[in-house]
Simulated assay, not measured.
Amino acid sequence: MQEVILALIAGLIVGFVFALIKLPIPAPPALAGVMGIVGVYLGYKLYHWLLPIIQS
């Protein structure tokens, strides 16, 4: 859980700095983009979860 909180804090700092120096946000600006990233992560985890089952 500490890793998640540190990642959130780092993201908040980066987002603040980007806004401060008036650069575009370095992340998808819409919920659909964020969900796409979550889907990629979940697909990766699913593969590694199913790999032992597939190889048996």
Rank of each mutant, 00 (worst) to 15 (best):
M1G: 13
Q2K: 09
Q2P: 05
Q2L: 08
Q2G: 04
E3K: 14
E3I: 12
E3M: 08
I5T: 05
I5S: 06
I5K: 10
L6M: 14
L6K: 12
L6S: 05
A7H: 09
A7D: 11
L8W: 06
L8S: 14
I9L: 14
I9Y: 08
I9Q: 08
A10I: 12
A10E: 06
A10R: 09
G11D: 06
G11L: 08
G11M: 04
L12R: 01
L12A: 15
L12H: 03
L12S: 06
G15T: 05
F16C: 05
F16K: 09
V17R: 00
V17F: 06
V17H: 01
V17Q: 01
V17W: 03
F18Q: 09
F18L: 11
F18D: 03
F18A: 05
F18P: 03
A19C: 01
A19H: 06
A19E: 11
A19P: 02
L20C: 04
I21Q: 03
I21V: 15
K22V: 09
K22A: 12
L23G: 07
L23C: 10
L23Q: 14
P24V: 08
P24G: 11
P24R: 12
I25E: 07
P26I: 07
A27L: 14
P28G: 10
P29K: 13
P29F: 03
A30R: 14
A30L: 10
A30T: 11
A30K: 14
A30W: 11
A30N: 12
L31T: 09
A32I: 08
G33I: 11
G33C: 03
V34C: 00
V34H: 04
I37W: 14
V38A: 15
V38R: 03
V38F: 12
V38Y: 13
G39W: 12
V40K: 07
V40S: 07
V40P: 00
Y41H: 03
Y41W: 13
Y41E: 10
Y41P: 02
L42N: 06
L42S: 08
L42W: 04
L42I: 11
G43T: 00
Y44V: 00
Y44W: 11
Y44C: 02
K45W: 02
L46C: 01
L46T: 07
L46Y: 04
L46P: 00
Y47G: 01
Y47Q: 00
Y47V: 00
H48T: 02
W49T: 10
W49S: 08
L50W: 01
L51I: 00
L51M: 14
P52F: 06
P52L: 11
I53K: 09
I53R: 10
I54W: 15
I54A: 15
Q55C: 04
Q55L: 13
S56C: 05
S56R: 14
